[in-house]
Amino acid sequence: MSRKTVLVVDDDPIFVEAISAVLETRYEVRTASNGPSALQSVAEQQPDIVILDVMMDYPSEGFDVARALHGDPATTAIPVVMLTGVDQVYNYRMETDETWVPCARFLEKPITPDQLLTQVAELIG
């Protein structure tokens, strides 16, 4: 049985490298450093889960990616995990017009390898 695929989207290459190292123990890992490349990667080959940073090229880029994935029938079923250094309440407040973010989990950095693996396993096994 082939391994499930995780798409990690973050603009910090070292962070991407670190959590890739964790996720690679169980999953196939692909990476992207911003919203457009993430959407392109999904379009090319659908991952089983997407782990998204919020603030990349612009402050709410991660939210927009999550909404784009949710809004497309082809990708709406892909679970999205927001993983960010900004606390949850603050981000929601900043996005006063569109506070709703379609994501399965909202996790804060830093996250331990065990926590990350547990969260992803709960969503895709």
């Binding site: 070292i14 962070f15 900004v86 603050y90 950095k109």
Partner: peptide, 25 residues
């Protein structure tokens, strides 16, 4: 808050990197 975030983001990367290294992964 903004300043704290600016500090927290790289700290998160450092912490996760160290976790990965110390856990032997």
């Amino acid at each position: 808050r903004i300043s704290a975030h600016q500090l927290r983001s790289p700290l998160g990367t450092v912490r996760t990197s160290l976790d990965v290294l110390t856990s032997g992964l």
